[in-house]
Design a binder for these strands. Structure first.
Lengths: 108, 108
DNA sequence: CGTGTAAGGAATTCTGACACG
DNA sequence: CGTGTAAGGAATTCTGACACG
């Protein structure tokens, strides 16, 4: 019953053209931030980059910081920190759900 | 404060290749269902179709019905009915939000 | 350091048609 | 009716490089 609509946020489905429209950034910028390891799009078998809505949010965040004069490597460590924290939260959450499911015999 | 993450569901951002992967349908089928007016993707200025996650859900629904032997024109009227109902709900909702915002002087 | 651009190639998407039925 | 396919063209994306700084 817990359909996770929120998973749409993290699904990598957009090509760079749409991301460019959504963020207002140039393809050059989007690819450059990837090279600097600020985001990690998926790739299709043939090498086409695929982004999620959360990547788009992330890019807008990055763009703001760049404008403020923050350098990519600084943004990178901040984002890495945040990602780590989020990963921990996700695991904690996953375990909690497992517990609940085991208890109430639900499917997931 | 009410960030609508759920708006991601209706944002038309995917090209047909991804939709094909997500639904398991052929491009031919996806385009055909559009011709039969079962769904309404956007188009870029250059004519490329763009789909939303809700279009993907809709396609899977359509595919199920086709398998059951339901014909496209029947599916069409059912979907049209559902769309109408949803539209009414959306408007009602929008008005309610307007009321609330006016009352509490919130930004939206 | 961060970004623009021209270059050439590869992958994607589009439409209308022939086919089967 | 619903779907597959080959055909030709247009639009998209990719990489590595030159440029400025």
């Amino acid at each position: 019953m817990t359909t996770n609509e929120s998973s749409y946020r993290d699904k990598k489905v957009m090509s760079i053209g749409i991301v460019k429209e959504l963020t207002g950034l140039s393809e050059r910028q989007i690819r450059y931030y990837e090279k600097r390891q600020l985001l990690f799009p998926d790739r299709t078998d043939t090498g086409i980059r695929k982004y999620s809505f959360s990547d788009v949010e992330r890019l807008m965040d990055i763009a703001d910081q760049i404008e403020e004069g923050v350098q990519t490597h600084e943004i990178r460590s901040e984002l890495a920190k945040r990602d780590e924290l989020q990963k921990t939260k996700d695991i904690r959450n996953k375990m909690l759900k497992g517990q609940l499911n085991a208890h109430f015999q639900k499917k997931y």
